[in-house]
């Protein structure tokens, strides 16, 4: 599971108000090369919740994302874009768990695939 995906996920247990973002409990993190495409980063940026990505990236071993992102950074700050790219697409949570920030419910991640099925009493 990539942090791009993590950024889109939210705990969907019935009644949970603050289910975003999942906390990450990593057991095994893998790195996978992805083609660097700054245009993709510029397009995807507005779709992201930046603080959630930044926080998750820190947990996953990419501490270099800034708190604020400006338009000029997106346009021509190569160093920033490389870190952004790395955090978004190249860090893979292979084994571990996603933890609901409100209830503490753990959703296991196995072989890179999170299991987000709910129990009967959660729907």
């Amino acid at each position: 599971m990539k942090l791009l995906t993590h950024n889109m996920l939210s705990c969907h247990i019935k009644g949970v108000k603050n289910g975003y973002p999942f906390k990450i409990d990593p057991v095994k993190i893998e790195e996978m090369d992805a083609d660097y495409d700054p245009d993709f980063l510029r397009h995807i940026y507005p779709r992201l919740e930046w603080p959630a990505l930044r926080e998750a990236a820190q947990v996953m071993g990419e501490p270099n994302l800034p708190e604020e992102v400006t338009e000029s950074m997106l346009q021509n700050d190569e160093e920033f874009l490389r870190h952004f790219h790395h955090a978004l697409l190249e860090l893979i949570l292979e084994e571990g768990a996603l933890v609901c920030p409100e209830t503490g419910r753990r959703f296991p991640v196995h072989k890179g695939v999170p299991n987000l099925l709910l129990h009967e009493d959660e729907v």
Binding site: M8, L9, L116
Partner: peptide
Amino acid sequence: QPLPRCDVAVADGLHLPYRTGALD
């Protein structure tokens, strides 16, 4: 070809685990 921007989850379509209003 590599699919560096895709991911897979086990999830139920009746209880989608994505945040509201996130997707194109």
